[in-house]
Design a protein around this nucleic acid. Structure first.
Length: 468
RNA sequence: GGGCGCGUAGCUCAACUGGCAGAGCAAGUGACUCUUAAUCACUAGGUUGUAGGUUCGAGACCUACCGCGCUCACCA
C-alpha cells in the first residue's frame, strides 16, 4: 500500500469517527461573523485588556494549517483568504464531543468555530474556542508547511494547492483582478462601453498570428478562434458606438514561453474622432492609474528595476534604432534585434513602417510610415495602438498586399476580409485604437518573471492523470 | 522546433569516484492545559519519471522516450 493510499484510508476512517460523534464530514452553510483578515485588521492593535472589556465573540471559518496538541489543550492556525489566525482549544472550555472532534482534526480540514478573542502569553491575537463545527474533510495531505509547494509543475497543474501552500500567489491574482477592474473603471469614466465580439470567426484578422482551427458541425464549416477582436470592434465604430472596449481572450497557435501563453487576455479599445496621439495621452493616464490602483504607486519594482508608469517616454522607431536611413522591414528588424530588449522603462515607440501595419493610417507627410505606436517595458511589448485606417480603398489595397505576402510564404499575413472593407465603405469616423496585453501588464505589476505566474491555469502538456 | 538543465517518500531535500536509498516536515501510537517550524519517545512509509543497455554491482554511467524549467527562434 502506498503512503498516499494509507493516508487516504486513515482519513476515511476518521470520517467515520467524525460522523460517529454527530458531525457531518462535509457540512453545509456556515455564516461566520468575521473573516480572518477582518479580525486581523480590526483587532491587531488591541491590547489583552481591551479584548476582555468587553469580550469580543466571533464565529470564524477556515482551513487548518497547523495543529499543536498538548494533552488536554492545544492550538491550531486557521487560514482564510491567505491570512492565518491562531485558535486555542481547551478540553474544559468546549463540549466533550467538540474536544473529541478536535483530536481527530487533520491539517487541511475546514472547520468553523465559536469563541472570543484574546491574547496568548506570547501576545498573539487568538480565538479562545467555545464550540467547534466541522465543514470539510481533507483526504489528501497538504504540502509541507515550512517550505510550501515549490515544484513549479505541480504549482501550475494543481493551482489550488499552490494557492493553499503559497499565499503570495493569492496576492498576485488579487492584483491581477485589481488591474482589470481599474481599467474597466477608468474606461467607463471616459464614456467607453464594454462589448463582446465573436471568439469564433470564419475570417480571422487584427493581428499577425497563426490561428487555432475548429469545426462547427451543424453548419459544417471550419471556424477560427480569434487572434484579435480588432476588426469587429471597428465595425462597431462604423455603427456608431463611438467608444468601445473589450477585455477578453485571444488565441494564437504559436510557441509557449515565459511571455507567451496560447490563450491570453487582451484589452482592446477604440475611440472615434481621435488619433494616435490621443491614444498616447490616454495610455499614459490609464497606466499611471492602473499602477496606482494595483500597487499603490506609479513606480513599480520589476525584477530589480524601478519602472515609472507616471512618466512614459516617447521615441520614434528611427531614433530608437539610431539610423535615420532605415525603413520598412529592415527598420523593424533592427528595432527588434537591437532595441526592444533594452527598453526597460515604459517607452512609447512611434512611427512604424507601413509594411508591417496593414490596419493603420499612413502619416500625412510620409506615406512610408503610419501613425502607430507600441508600448514597451522590461523589454516586452505591452501595448499596440494606432490611428485607424478608415479609407476602404486603401484598406483593400493593404489587404491585397497581405495576400501577396501570404502567397510568398508569410503564414501570419492577414486574410482578405471583404465585409470589413464593406463596413469601412459605409464610412468610419477617424478613430484611434489600442490593445494592451493584460497578462504582461500583470507580470509587471506583480513582479512576476513568467506569464504562467499571472495566468491561473496556464497551458501545459496533459499527462496521465495518475502521474500527478 | 533547436540548445542547456532537472526528475529520489505526500512535501522540502540528502546519498562522495558506481558499493546496504537517508533526513526533516506530514502520517500512526504514547506523554504533555499558553503552543507557534511546539517538544519528547516509538512506528510505518520507496518500481529513485518510463523502457532498455553497460557493469560483479546503477539513484548515479550510456541510449530512447515522457514531463517540467531556462534559453533561442516565432509572437503579444
Amino acid at each position: 500500500m502506498s503512503i498516499e493510499d494509507e493516508l487516504y484510508e486513515q482519513r476515511l476512517a476518521k470520517i467515520s469517527q467524525i460522523e460517529a460523534l454527530g458531525f457531518k464530514a462535509y457540512g453545509h452553510r456556515f455564516d461566520f461573523s468575521h473573516s480572518i483578515p477582518q479580525i486581523i485588521a480590526d483587532y491587531s492593535n488591541k491590547t489583552a485588556e481591551e479584548l476582555e472589556n468587553p469580550r469580543v465573540t466571533v464565529r470564524v471559518a477556515g482551513r487548518i494549517l497547523t495543529i499543536r496538541r498538548m494533552g488536554k489543550a492545544g492550538f491550531a492556525h486557521l487560514m482564510q483568504d491567505g491570512e492565518r489566525m491562531q485558535v486555542y482549544v481547551r478540553k474544559d472550555a468546549v463540549p466533550e464531543k467538540d474536544y473529541e472532534l478536535y483530536l481527530l482534526l487533520d491539517i487541511g480540514d475546514i472547520i468553523g468555530i465559536d469563541g472570543y478573542l484574546f491574547r496568548t502569553r506570547t501576545g498573539e491575537l487568538s480565538v479562545h474556542v467555545e464550540k467547534l463545527y466541522f465543514l470539510a474533510k481533507t483526504l489528501l495531505p497538504l504540502p509541507e508547511k515550512w517550505h510550501g509547494l515549490e515544484d513549479v509543475e505541480t504549482r501550475y497543474r494543481q493551482r489550488y494547492l499552490d494557492m493553499i501552500a503559497n499565499p503570495e500567489v493569492l496576492k498576485v491574482f488579487k492584483t491581477r483582478s485589481k488591474i482589470i477592474s481599474s481599467l474597466r473603471r477608468q474606461l467607463e469614466s471616459h464614456g467607453y462601453l464594454e462589448v463582446e465580439t465573436p471568439m469564433l470567426q470564419s475570417i480571422y484578422g487584427g493581428a499577425a498570428a497563426r490561428p487555432f482551427i475548429t469545426h462547427h458541425n451543424a453548419l459544417d464549416i471550419d471556424l477560427y478562434l480569434r487572434i484579435a477582436p480588432e476588426l469587429y470592434l471597428k465595425r462597431l465604430i462604423v455603427g456608431g458606438l463611438e467608444r468601445v472596449y473589450e477585455i477578453n481572450r485571444n488565441f494564437r497557435n504559436e510557441g509557449i514561453s515565459t511571455r507567451h501563453n496560447p490563450e491570453f487576455t487582451m484589452l482592446e479599445f477604440y475611440q472615434a474622432y481621435t488619433d494616435m496621439s490621443g491614444m498616447m495621452d490616454l495610455t499614459g493616464e490609464l497606466l499611471k492609474q492602473v499602477a496606482l490602483d494595483a500597487t499603490g504607486s506609479a513606480i513599480v519594482e520589476y525584477q530589480g528595476e524601478q519602472l515609472d508608469f507616471g512618466n512614459i517616454r516617447r521615441m520614434s522607431m528611427r531614433d530608437a534604432v539610431g539610423d535615420a536611413t532605415l525603413s520598412g522591414q529592415a527598420l523593424v528588424e533592427a528595432f527588434e534585434r537591437n532595441v526592444e530588449a533594452t527598453l526597460i522603462q515604459p517607452t512609447l515607440i512611434f512611427d512604424f513602417p507601413v509594411e508591417v501595419s496593414p490596419l493603420s493610417k499612413q502619416k500625412p507627410d510620409d506615406p512610408a510610415f503610419v501613425d502607430r505606436f507600441e508600448l514597451f517595458a522590461a523589454g516586452m511589448e505591452i501595448a499596440n495602438a494606432f490611428t485607424e485606417l478608415n479609407d476602404p480603398i486603401d484598406q483593400r489595397h493593404r489587404f491585397e498586399m497581405q495576400l501577396n505576402a501570404r502567397a510568398s510564404g508569410d503564414t501570419e499575413a492577414h486574410q482578405m476580409d471583404e465585409d470589413y472593407v464593406r463596413a469601412l465603405s459605409y464610412g468610419m469616423p477617424p478613430a484611434g485604437g489600442e490593445g494592451i496585453g493584460i497578462d504582461r501588464l500583470a507580470m509587471l505589476l506583480t513582479n512576476s518573471k513568467s506569464i504562467r505566474d499571472v495566468i491561473l491555469f496556464p497551458l501545459l502538456r496533459p499527462t496521465n492523470a495518475a502521474a500527478v
